[in-house]
């Protein structure tokens, strides 16, 4: 069997609140294969966000191990994690997190700035990704000139620009109306069909229902992990 894209073993995270130690994640073990579309669900405080932060190499685990594409990343330094995020991961956030007063093109090219790519090549790559998400005519628009759905498309293009092995989406439809949410999900599904592995966090069942696998968290543990017959977002738009 091929090496899993993600393998975590007994992954744990504790937070210190004054003298109290709050366990946020208590020994999670699972694997995610390349090409999967996984939804992570759970109520607030269930540990799903902590799990996503660890998957996204944004935080250090307190215990356990995490292999990403065969590399153990749970022991890396801050700078090495930045390097991993830059080369292997893409992020989509609930509130888009685009730079204000910066064109869509430069927003999308931002990750490449930190991999030392020359300006003209950054713009070339960014333009290619903006075309892919259907915003070829909005290259020079600033975030304030775009609708919420368009802004999230720009953010998705940014997540793709460094050819990541994994895209992590944290409530990507949380700030969008239902019609736009379905459009964004259709885009993510299409990208998944093109071979990109996606892990998304949500608390909405409708959104999770587009995924091929759903993992439920509660009190820092996985309580349910099952395959799902994915709904077809493209069909819903018709």
């Amino acid at each position: 069997m091929a090496e899993a894209l993600i393998r975590v073993e007994q992954l744990a995270k504790e937070y210190r609140m004054g003298s109290n130690v709050v366990p946020a994640l208590q020994g999670v073990s699972l694997e995610i294969q390349a090409g999967e579309f996984v939804a992570v669900m759970g109520p607030s405080g269930s540990g799903k966000s902590t799990f996503m932060n660890l998957l996204g190499c944004l935080d250090h685990p307190s215990g356990g191990s995490y292999w990403l594409a065969g590399q153990e990343v749970s022991r890396l330094s801050g700078d090495e994690l930045a390097q991993v995020r830059n080369s292997k991961l893409g992020f989509v956030f609930q509130h888009f997190n685009l730079l204000a007063r910066t064109s869509a093109l430069d927003n999308v090219g931002l990750p490449l700035l930190y991999s030392h790519m020359p300006l003209h090549e950054r713009r070339l790559q960014a333009e290619r990704r903006l075309r892919q998400v259907g915003l070829a005519d909005r290259l020079d628009h600033h975030p304030a000139q775009l609708s919420g759905g368009q802004q999230q498309r720009v953010a998705i293009a940014r997540a793709l620009v460094n050819n990541p092995q994994l895209v992590l989406a944290d409530e990507p439809t949380g700030a969008l109306d239902s019609r736009t949410s379905v459009e964004i999900m259709a885009l993510l599904l299409q990208l998944n069909r093109e071979g990109i592995t996606i892990v998304l966090v949500t608390h909405e069942h409708d959104v999770a229902n587009f995924a091929g696998r759903i993992i439920n968290f509660r009190d820092g543990r996985v309580i349910q992990d099952h395959a799902n017959a994915a709904a077809d977002a493209a069909a819903m738009l018709k």
């Binding site: 930045a82 930190y114 991999s115 460094n162």
Partner: peptide
């Protein structure tokens, strides 16, 4: 935070 998430190191 965003710049760090997409790969900026502390010294950047």
């Amino acid at each position: 935070g965003l710049r760090m998430a997409v790969g900026a190191r502390g010294r950047d």
